[in-house]
Structures are given as C-alpha cells and as structure tokens.
C-alpha cells in the first residue's frame, strides 16, 4: 500500500502541534524536511552520525514542547528555528565534551540577538535529560501507566489492556502510587526540582 506523505505549511504545522495529541505524521514531516540539513551541520562540526541523530531527536522534542507551551513566536521560519536549536544544542554538547573551548568562546560573543532567544530554550537541557533518567528509574509498569494516561490520554479501560492488573480500581491505585513516587523523586531536592520545572516549562 502506498504511504501518504503529508505536507504542512509553517502555520499548519504549528496549529497541528498545538493539538493535544502529536501525530506521527507531523514528526515524520519534520524529519523529512529538516534531518538532512541539521544532521549535516553536526557531522561537519566534529559530530558522528549517532551524535547527529541524538541531537536531532532532542531538537524535535524541544521544538514540539516549545510550541505546546506557546513559546514559539514565529519570528523566523520553522526551518531556521530548528537549525538554530540544532546548532546550539550541538555546540552546547561539544562544550560539555570540552572539545571546542575556543569555538564556544567565540560563539558566546558572536551570537545574534534572535539566536540568544533560541539558545535560552537549551539552558536546562541537562535537567531534561535527568527527568528522562528518573522516569527510567520509575519502573516499566509505572512508565507505561503514566505515559498512557497523561501523554496518550488513554482512558483507564484501555490502559488496563496494556498492563496486568485485576481491575480499573487496582490500576487507579497503582497510577496514584506511580505519580506520587515520581513526584517524590522530582522534588527530593528543592534546587533540582526548580531546575526540572524550569526545564519542562521552558522558563514559564
């Protein structure tokens, strides 16, 4: 069967991303339209293919969350915005690896004003990664239940089919415990909790 490839204008893309559920076709469209150029930038700047892929995934997640939080102002095209996000995510990564001190010093000084606007979205990228690892620590069942409920917006009846629990009430209790566990992990350290919040709300 022939696969339908959807095309979106910048406006349509933003509107679609603001919907509660992000469709795979929108993410695929972002890949088809931007991966070649963005991954090339990473590869041409000391990055491997794997680095390019990791950074691109991060850029897509960041972009979608920025749009959902209403932080994308549309002052530049999506392509330009993604390119700048990709550039600074990668430079930030390089800095962490201590490989481009000179380049970093230069980039810090030469950054354009609109680029600074983009780069601040990346300030807490480490905190976002930490959130990811805390989720991993939560356990498989809790991850499934919480993402199915809060991200996929599935009703309890459908989540019950995904996990092995006797009934909806047991599942509901488990969900409560999972959310509390996650909340406790995230808030164990006040300073860190503040960073998590800042990271997930993009400075809201």
């Amino acid at each position: 069967m022939k696969k339908t490839v959807l095309h979106f204008s910048d406006e349509e893309l933003i509107d679609t991303l603001k919907d509660e559920q992000v469709s795979n076709s929108v993410i695929s469209f972002l890949y088809r339209s931007n991966y070649a150029v963005l991954s090339n930038y990473v590869r041409q700047n000391q990055g491997s293919e794997q680095d390019a892929q990791d950074i691109f995934q991060e850029v897509i997640v960041t972009f979608i969350e920025i749009v959902k939080k209403g932080k994308f102002r549309g002052e530049s095209s999506i392509k330009t915005f993604l390119f700048t996000l990709n550039k600074y995510a990668w430079l930030n990564e390089l800095k962490k690896r201590n490989r481009t001190v000179l380049r970093e010093e230069r980039y810090g000084h030469e950054m354009e004003v609109d680029e600074k606007d983009v780069s601040h979205f990346l300030v807490e990228r480490d905190a976002r990664k930490l959130v990811q690892s805390l989720m991993e620590k939560l356990g498989d069942a809790c991850r499934k239940i919480l993402t199915a409920y809060y991200y996929d917006n599935l009703p309890m009846k459908e989540i019950l089919a995904l996990v092995n629990y006797e009934n909806e009430q047991v599942l509901r209790n488990k969900k409560y415990k999972c959310l509390k566990s996650l909340e406790q992990m995230l808030n164990a350290d006040k300073a860190l909790a503040q960073r998590f919040k800042s990271a997930l709300t993009y400075g809201q």
Binding site: N24, Q132, Y151, L182, L186
Partner: peptide
C-alpha cells in the same frame, strides 16, 4: 509538585514517540 510529575510523564511520552518515529524515519 504533582504537576511537575505530570509534565515529566508527558515529556517522557513525547520522547518515546519521537524515538519511535526516529527509527522508522
């Protein structure tokens, strides 16, 4: 605090979805 936990779950969900599309793409 609970909202933060909810946001973390949503963030994780989005990452998982992008990772899944990533492999196909």
């Amino acid at each position: 605090n609970l909202e933060l936990a909810k946001m973390a779950a949503m963030h994780y969900g989005l990452r998982q979805q992008v990772a899944s599309v990533h492999h196909h793409m």
